[in-house]
Design a protein around this nucleic acid. Structure first.
Length: 152
DNA sequence: GCCAACGTTGGC
DNA sequence: GCCAACGTTGGC
């Protein structure tokens, strides 16, 4: 069992959008970074914990608890010429971009990025490191526990 | 809108 | 394989 933080732009897919979807589940489309893809393709397992994070918005932070609910499979948007995530270089018999389905299990009060930076026990989190841009980062169990305790 | 950080591309 | 140029991310 591993833990992850996954960034989504709420203007694109917010935690409320995900909760409103069938089974509160969304396909994590649009990742176009190889490191982030590799986490989904190679390392995520069904049941892994996910911190649902809102980015590029007024109050970036963790807004929901979720879990991985599928094996990885090709991101359909890479084959859709009308999608902003279309990738002409990716072929159906050799897809470049893989994703997983993520199910939100509960919404939580926003643990803002500013608040996270103030908590010493979270200081080593990868998402807080200077210059971090990865939209998917592994989360240590100690950080997961610190962030999810008392929110059940 | 700015800009630091860093990933990707492509010429050589 | 190097590395400069360029593009993107994402907080502020």
């Amino acid at each position: 069992m591993n833990y992850w933080l996954m960034k989504s732009e709420p203007d694109d897919v917010s935690v409320d959008d995900a909760l409103a979807a069938p089974n509160s589940t969304v396909a994590w489309t649009g990742v176009r970074n190889f490191q982030a893809r590799n986490f989904m393709r190679n390392e995520m397992k069904i049941g892994d914990g996910v911190l649902f994070y809102h980015s590029s918005c007024a109050e970036p932070g963790i807004v929901g608890i979720a879990r991985v609910v599928s094996e990885s499979y090709p991101d359909p948007t890479q084959f859709d010429p009308k999608s902003r995530y279309y990738d002409a270089a990716s072929k159906r018999d050799h897809p470049r971009w893989m994703l997983v389905d993520v199910q939100v299990t509960r919404k939580i009060p926003n643990i803002t990025l500013a608040e996270m930076r103030q908590r010493p026990e979270l200081a080593e989190m990868r998402v807080l490191r200077k210059g971090n841009r990865l939209s998917i980062t592994p989360v240590d169990k100690e950080h997961w526990d610190a962030l999810t305790k008392g929110t059940a």
